[in-house]
Structure formats: structure tokens, C-alpha cells
Amino acid sequence: MKAQALSASGPTAARPKPAEFIAFAVLTALLVVAPFALYPFFLATALCFALFAAAFNLLVGYAGLLSFGHALFFGGAAYVAAHAARVWGWPTELSLLAATAFAGLLGLGAGMLSIRRQGIYFSMITLALAQMGYFIALQVPFTHGEDGIQGVPRGKLFGLIPLSDDRVMYYFVLAIFLAGLFAIYRIVHSPFGAVLKAIRENEPRAISLGYSVDSYKLAAFGLSAALAGLAGGTKALVTQSATLTDMHWSMSGEVILMVLLGGMGTMTGPVIGAIFVVAIPEVLNRIGGPDFAQWMTVIQGAIFVVCVLAFRRGLIGEIAARLRRTL
């Protein structure tokens, strides 16, 4: 039980905490009733980004590895799902599975290269690899360059339930999202997750305890990429398209923003952060029109600066810290 002993001194113990469970339950209840108040299409897209952010958080929040290229897995998997569903006519579930597997394998490849260097180099390598993926996607024929893959059929769930209705699609996406989040929850609270946290807190010590740190990092990278791929594939089905936007470096930046805003290393933080980041342009459009929405990049940048300077724990992390103090 070396892993247990290591993480007990860290900020998050390996034992599941009731507070985390309550937050999870509240979130689920809210998401089940949400489509009665908000557009299901918007919500479904937001959930895809939330799963993407949660997958990203698995890597940055628990293993301490800041990937600056996660758009590669999100956008790459979106292309695979879209191509499988539209050109090969694969069933919905199989397309998603293919997207997840593709992103997972891509993640293992990118991970093998990037964990050869540590710290800041890791971030730069992932960014460069993702940029390479972006240019490849721009040039290979099946992605259709600037146009992207359009008109992707959502298909039928289990061959029976048509997913063309946005509300039905939303609940399908919610099921995927909850399954993904549960998987992350299990990973984080497993002995494997405890070792990841140990590596984040003190890598030399984890090495000296005999852990093969690189294989743990690689496994975390692969899992995170696969889940990001599941999110990307699902998003391709929701929006019925896969485009270069999802592979651009600004998407990698956006997912970092979601996790930073919500709270790195918290279970529900990335979800809340994702909903915020997705909602900001919508709200801006509503109150100020397209002129106002132009300032989106500036606002995102400002949130980055404020979060890093004054708010490093993020929204949920800050609340959690307050509660611990009063409890």
C-alpha cells in the first residue's frame, strides 16, 4: 500500500470523499433537467466540451502534465467519427469507438515522444505535435481541407432509437458524458491515480520509491487522449460536422482555460469551467451582438491572466478550499 501512504499526505486522499460525491450527484440532477430550460443542442455541445475538459484534467490536474496539444486528439477523433459515420456508414456506437481508439493510439504515440522531456519542454512538444497534426489535417484529402466533413448522420442508437432529435441526442450525450466522468473518477481514485498524484507532487521521490514514472505518465496520457477523443467524436455527431477549428491550437488553449477556470485537479471543476467558457460567447452575442463577440479572444486572455495571478485554484477549487476551512 505504498501508493496509499504516499498520497495521504497530498492534497487529495485516495479515498472517495462524500463532498465530491454530493457535488457529482447535484451536477447529474441539474444536467438531467437542464434540457427543459435550455436548448438541448447547446447543452449537448457543452457536455462534449465538459468531457473534453475532464479528460484533459486527468492529465494536468492529477499527473501534473500540461499538454498544450489536446486539440489533436479532440479534433482528430472528430474527423475519424465523422468519416466512419458518413463515408463508411458505420453505426453510431462503432464510429465513436473508432474515434476513441484512434485518439488513444495517437495519444500513446504523442505521449511516447513528449514525455521524453520534462516540464516546460513537454508542453512545447505537445503543442508542436498538435500543430503538425493540424497541417496534416489541412492537406490530407479525406478531411476536405477548409470545408471539413459536413452532413454527418447521427444514426440510430442500438439500431433502434433515431438520434436526429436534439433532445434524444442530448440524453445520449449525457450518458456518454456520465460514463466518461465516472471512468475518470475511478481512475483518479484507484491506486494508479494515487501514483499519478505522487508523481505530480514529487517526481524524484516517486522514482526513488521504485515506480516506473514514465509508464505511469504514458498510461495517463493515453487514457486522457482516448477520453478526449470520445468527447471529440461525440461532438462531431452532435454538430454533424468535423472541422479544422477543433484541431487548432486555440482549441488546445480553450480546454486549458476551462480546466484552469473550473479548478485543476478537482472532479467537477472542469465541467463547470467548460460550461462557462462555452456559454461566454453565447451570452456576449445575446447582450452585445456580433461586435461584442469579437472580443472573445481578449476576454479569454483576460480570464487566463486573472486566473493565474489571483485565482489559481479555480472556481470549484476555491469553494472546496473555503469549505475545508469552515468545516
Binding site: 508542453s123 486572455g301 493565474v308
Partner: peptide, 15 residues
């Protein structure tokens, strides 16, 4: 954090 802060600054300036 340095990378994230300067990334945010880059977004602001470019925006």
C-alpha cells in the same frame, strides 16, 4: 503558470 499567463497575454494582444 508562466506559460499560461503569457499565453493569456498573447491572446489579449492578438485579440
Amino acid at each position: 503558470y508562466g506559460l499560461l499567463l503569457t499565453f493569456g497575454l498573447a491572446l489579449i494582444i492578438q485579440g
